[in-house]
């Protein structure tokens, strides 16, 4: 049997068999096939081959594969972008609470030490007439008060005897940290003059 010389139409026969042509194009190809014996024979062979090839393919359990693929591609337990109110904001994965508490507790310890030493430095400044160290608003315990070194320093100056830093809430520790930062800004001011401290002044540190 001779073959059709219209290569364009021959190219479209598999797409017609597959149902992949638009309505207009399909009608044009069908009209050509109706008048072309070689294309008619080729289309018939194509449709038969298509049926046979599709039928002989192994049937797979699509639902089972979908379940397995979905399970295999689940995202790992990692920080996830969540849409917060007001827009998508990357939220950090939850940190272990103890880590932030420990960090805040350590910072608060430094605050206590600095707070306890500030009155002493202030007194020295007064006596030495030259060290302009302003009194800290975060001073909560005078040097001679019966407060253990590990005593908590709460914002506002209240001290509860017997508590430790780890007893404080995260909010209290955060407030202490803020006070510490304020203290650091204050202490960073360099004195313009300095005198030698009185030698017999007891050191707190």
């Amino acid at each position: 049997m001779t073959e059709c010389t219209n290569d364009g139409m021959r190219d479209l026969l598999p797409l017609l068999a597959h149902g992949a042509l638009g309505a207009g194009e399909a009608e044009a190809v069908k009209a050509h096939v109706a008048g072309c014996a070689p294309c008619g024979a080729e289309l018939a062979a194509l449709e038969t081959a298509r049926l046979v090839l599709r039928a002989q393919a192994p049937r797979v359990d699509v639902a089972a594969i979908a379940r397995a693929v979905t399970a295999a591609t689940q995202p790992a337990a990692a920080p996830v972008l969540r849409v917060e109110r007001g827009g998508a904001v990357p939220s950090v994965a939850r940190r272990a609470p103890w880590r932030s508490r420990q960090w805040l507790a350590a910072a608060a310890s430094v605050l206590v030490v600095v707070s306890l030493s500030l009155p002493m430095l202030s007194r020295v400044g007064e006596e030495g007439a030259g060290i302009p160290i302003p009194s800290s608003p975060a001073v909560v315990a005078p040097v001679d008060s019966p407060v253990a070194p590990a005593a908590p320093v709460a914002a506002g100056g209240s001290v509860t005897v017997g508590q430790t830093l780890t007893d404080l809430s995260a909010d209290d520790l955060t407030a202490l940290l803020s006070e510490l930062e304020a203290l650091e800004a204050t202490v960073a001011t360099e004195p313009t003059t300095m005198r030698q401290p009185i030698v017999d002044t007891p050191e707190v540190l």
Partner: peptide, 11 residues
Amino acid sequence: AAAALVERHAQ
């Protein structure tokens, strides 16, 4: 969406 893609292309 993953399941839909599998269903669409698996066979």
